[in-house]
Design a binder for these strands. Structure first.
Lengths: 253, 253
DNA sequence: GAGTGGTCTAGACCACCAC
DNA sequence: TGGTGGTCTAGACCACTCA
């Protein structure tokens, strides 16, 4: 890390970054280590002075890289304790990706009911958004989320089978805790970021029946594409939310 | 700013912050200046060394305060030029609060059609969320947004009349550019942050007619509460989005 | 008390922008 | 060429955690 003016690596885009600050290079190296699993989710990273020594860089530069990654949600910093790999297992990030809130009362964990889990050749559309070859297989999951006895969310989920070897209905059903935590601990796939497209749609026959609603009832359609390290898409999710007693919460800033 | 350990000001919450770092205090002072209008939207702040001198603090501390405020969207920093008060007038933040994207093609400015603008006593619910006294008056606006000739969004907007003296249908109709820019330049009210609650609903008779849809068509209901400096609510907006050719985009991280 | 991250400082140099 | 924000360094001290 002695050369400050190292080129910014591959640059396919026309507007190549002319210059990459040291802390960004450190950030890239740390992200790479995360990808390779050098530190497991929830584990502590080496301390700032250690990392500074390792990268031959001042502690301030390491700090800036760590702060940036903490801001991105990849790391969690705790004063007096250390810097840790972010995980979906923690209570504080339990609901990071579920924006559904009840109109009344506090948010509570919803019950899950697994409806289906099968392996199949990826439909064209699914293969396209997940960046799979046609012919690659995916795991398709259908499940309900219920508030008490009332079904609120109907999810269809597609995962690249290659990354989720051995994922089965039994495994899903037996698991207690958030699905993303299972993915993380059992398959080493961490969801970092997601894009959602939200629409209002009328409930179709099957969906209406599963959600215990009349056909044609308005539902929130939430299409989510989730990414792991490096912006690699690893999950497609199509959720139908019944928003009579819940709403989707968003903060703009 | 000589004393590092000044108390953190008022602390009504049970868990009072035991300690407020210098840069947070600087941040509070700068935010106060913004509130008081010391620098207009789009204007440049004094340079970092000047601010450091003014607050009797090192440049690094000023920088940390400015960086934090830039991250919050209150300021915009431009290398080689200076630090500026964020504004809704800039192209880059044009769509900061409108998350609607077309399925096909690039996002384009939508045409506006003002349907109504009147002053009235705040309905109880509106007064409650805007923190007004019962009896305070509000400006109520109803408008359409159209993509080409197709109505896509029906907005109902409520604003505290006290803050928007002189806002009229003529003024709104004559203004070219984003509504939040008008609020900012003409009334000195800057929208900093907003909370949205999103649901799927069936179009009612009036709404269906205005959006040129059959009654009962599914629509996205977006209830937005916007805040200015200091977390003060200053706008309630109830939008109905027709999501056949558009979707609401959200990024989770 | 030892170790961690958090704050604050001071100074050097770099990249960008305008004149 | 001078001024701006951006990066990097080195060192001091503070707050938090835990043994």
């Amino acid at each position: 890390m002695a050369s400050t003016s190292a080129p910014a690596g591959t640059a396919a885009a026309p507007a190549a970054p002319a210059f990459s600050p040291l802390y960004r290079q450190i950030q890239a190296l740390l992200t790479r280590s995360l990808t390779l699993g050098e530190w497991q989710p929830g584990a502590a990273l080496p301390s700032e002075p250690e990392l500074a020594l390792r990268f031959k860089v001042s502690q301030g530069t390491v700090r800036k890289a760590l702060d940036a990654m903490a801001a991105d949600g990849l790391l969690v910093r705790r004063q007096g304790k250390g810097t840790f790999v972010a995980t979906h297992a923690e209570a504080q990030v339990q609901y990071r990706f579920l924006r559904l809130m009840p109109d009344q009362g506090e948010r509570q964990a919803m019950r899950r009911r697994l409806l289906d889990c099968r392996r199949l050749r990826a439909p064209a559309e699914v293969a396209r958004v997940l960046g799979l070859d046609s012919g690659d297989s995916v795991v398709q999951i259908r499940r309900l989320l219920l508030a008490g006895e009332v079904p609120v969310v109907l999810d269809d989920i597609w995962l690249p089978a290659r990354l989720f070897k051995g994922l089965s209905a039994e495994r899903l059903d037996a698991y207690r805790g958030p699905m993303y935590r299972l993915f993380e601990t059992e398959f080493g796939v961490r969801m970092i970021r997601a894009d959602e497209k939200i629409r209002a749609v009328a409930a179709g026959g099957d969906e209406a029946a599963l959600l215990n609603l009349p056909e044609g009832a308005p539902l929130l359609l939430v299409e989510r594409l989730s990414f792991t390290y490096g912006g690699k898409p690893v999950e497609l999710r199509r959720g139908l939310y019944h928003t009579a007693a819940h709403y989707y919460r968003n903060e703009l800033s």
